[in-house]
Simulated assay, not measured.
Amino acid sequence: MTDHATPPQPASDPLPPSGTPAPPVPSAPPMPAYGAETAIGAVEFTQPALTPEAVAEERAHRARRRKAAVRWGCAALVFALAGTGTALAVTAPERTDIPGLATAGDGRYTFPPPALPPLPSGKAAPDGKGKSLHYADLRYLLLPAPKEAGGSVTAPTFPAPAATPTAPASPSASASASASEPATPATPAATATPAATAVAGWVPCDAILAEQQDPAKLRELLLQNACRAATVREWTASDGTRTQIRLLRFGSVSESWDTYTSLRSKGRPKAAADTKSTDHHDWADVPGVELTALESTATAAKGNPTARVAYLSAADILAVVTMTNPGGIPSAPFRQVVTLQSDLLA
C-alpha cells in the first residue's frame, strides 16, 4: 500500500486579537436643512426658503381673501333681507292695494256681509228647492244698498221677528193691506241714506204696474194670483246706475210661479222698451231660485246695454231687478246684484 500524505486542513480565520475595536455601525444620514436639496428615489424636490417679502405677500393674500369673503357674505345677507322684506311687503297687504297688481275695476259694488233675518217661532227656513214658503219679514230679504250708493258696509241687524202678514188678493186693496203690516224698524243698511230709507218699506202690489208698458195685463195677473205683500228698494250708485229691486209675495208657490212665467214672457218694462234674452248659463246656479235675464237692445259705449232686467222666482216670492244707466251697464255689477239677491231668497 502506498501511503498518501494527508492534505493539511485549512486554517480557520484567526480571531481578531483581543483589544481590537469592532468596525463602527453606520448611522442614519442627517436630515437636510430647510432649503437644501433632497433626493427621493430618482426625483429631487427643492423647497426654496421663504423670504420675509414672500411671507408678507402670503399674509396679505390671505387678508384679501378674508375681506372678500366678508364682503360677499354681507352682500348675500343684504340680498336675503331685501328678498324677505319684499316678500312680506307683497304678501301682507291685500292684492288690490298693491300698485300694478290691483285688478282693474269691472263695476262691481261693495256690499255688507250677507245676513238673513230671524224666523218666527216654529217656522222653518226654505228648503232650497223652491217648494217651501218664506216666513221671514219680506223687507229684510231685500239686498241692502252698496257702499257706492251711500250704504253701510257693516252687516245688518234685525229686530225680533213678527207674525207674517197677509193681504187681500185684490191688488187695489194691497195699499191698505200694506199699511196694516207690523211696523218693524228698518235695517241699518236701509237707514244708511235718506233715499234708502224712503223706499225700504211696504208698498202696494200694484205699484209695479206703473213700470210696465201694458199694465192692464199684469193687473189681471195680480188679481188672479192674489199678491199678498210687496216691498221695494232702489238706489243710484256713483257710476250713475240706478238699481231697483222689487219683491212680491204670493199665497202659494203655484201662484208665484204663474206670475213669474207670464211676466218674463209677456212683461214689457218701460225702462227697457225693447229687450232680448241674455245668456247667463255661466253664472253660478242658486238652488231654489229660477232666473230669467233680459237686456235692452239699445247700447252705449263698449256695447253695454243701457238697461238690464232680471226676474227671479223663489217659491212664493217673485223678485224683479231693474238696472238702468244711459252710459251702459257692464255684465259684472248686474250679475253681482242678481246673484246676491238670489242668495237672500234661496
Rank of each mutant, 00 (worst) to 15 (best):
V232P: 01
A198E: 14
L101P: 00
R62C: 00
N325W: 04
P114D: 09
L101Q: 10
L77G: 13
A314Y: 02
Q341Y: 01
Y34V: 00
T91P: 01
T259D: 05
A230I: 01
P204S: 13
T197H: 03
E255M: 07
K123F: 00
L141I: 09
V55G: 03
L221N: 15
A346S: 15
Y109M: 11
Y135T: 04
G288L: 05
T299C: 04
R268G: 04
P118W: 08
L142T: 03
I40G: 13
L340T: 05
E181Y: 00
A210R: 06
R268I: 13
L88K: 02
L116Y: 11
I329S: 02
R71K: 10
Q9G: 01
K67E: 05
L116Q: 12
E94S: 13
Y260A: 01
V78L: 15
W283K: 06
A136N: 03
P165C: 09
V203I: 15
S121D: 15
S172A: 13
V25C: 01
S331M: 09
A89H: 02
C74L: 15
C205P: 09
A162D: 13
A5L: 14
L340Y: 08
G303M: 02
A124Y: 05
K129E: 15
T322D: 04
R65G: 13
G73Y: 00
A102Q: 10
T96R: 09
C74V: 13
L88M: 03
T243E: 09
L312G: 08
A76W: 11
L294Y: 04
A273L: 13
P26V: 08
T38Y: 03
L218V: 14
T110A: 09
D258A: 13
W235P: 02
D127C: 08
S296N: 09
T241G: 12
L344Y: 06
D239F: 07
S254D: 12
S238P: 00
A115T: 11
V320Q: 01
V337W: 03
Q341F: 05
G128T: 12
V199F: 10
R108S: 12
T110E: 06
F45A: 09
A196S: 15
I40N: 14
R65T: 06
I208L: 02
P185H: 14
A192F: 07
T231I: 11
A271S: 14
V199N: 08
A200S: 15
D13H: 06
Q224W: 00
V78M: 12
P156N: 12
A75N: 08
L116E: 09
S174C: 10
N325T: 06
R65Y: 10
V199D: 07
G130T: 13
T187D: 08
T297R: 04
S18F: 14
W235L: 03
V55T: 03
L133G: 06
A319K: 05
R71N: 01
E37V: 15
P32Q: 11
G85A: 15
R219G: 00
V25G: 08
R59P: 03
F79L: 15
Q9W: 05
T164R: 09
A56Q: 14
P165A: 09
E211H: 10
H281G: 04
A272R: 06
R59G: 07
R62Q: 15
A273M: 07
P7T: 11
V43P: 02
A315N: 10
Y34M: 06
S170C: 12
T2R: 14
R95L: 12
A5E: 13
E148F: 07
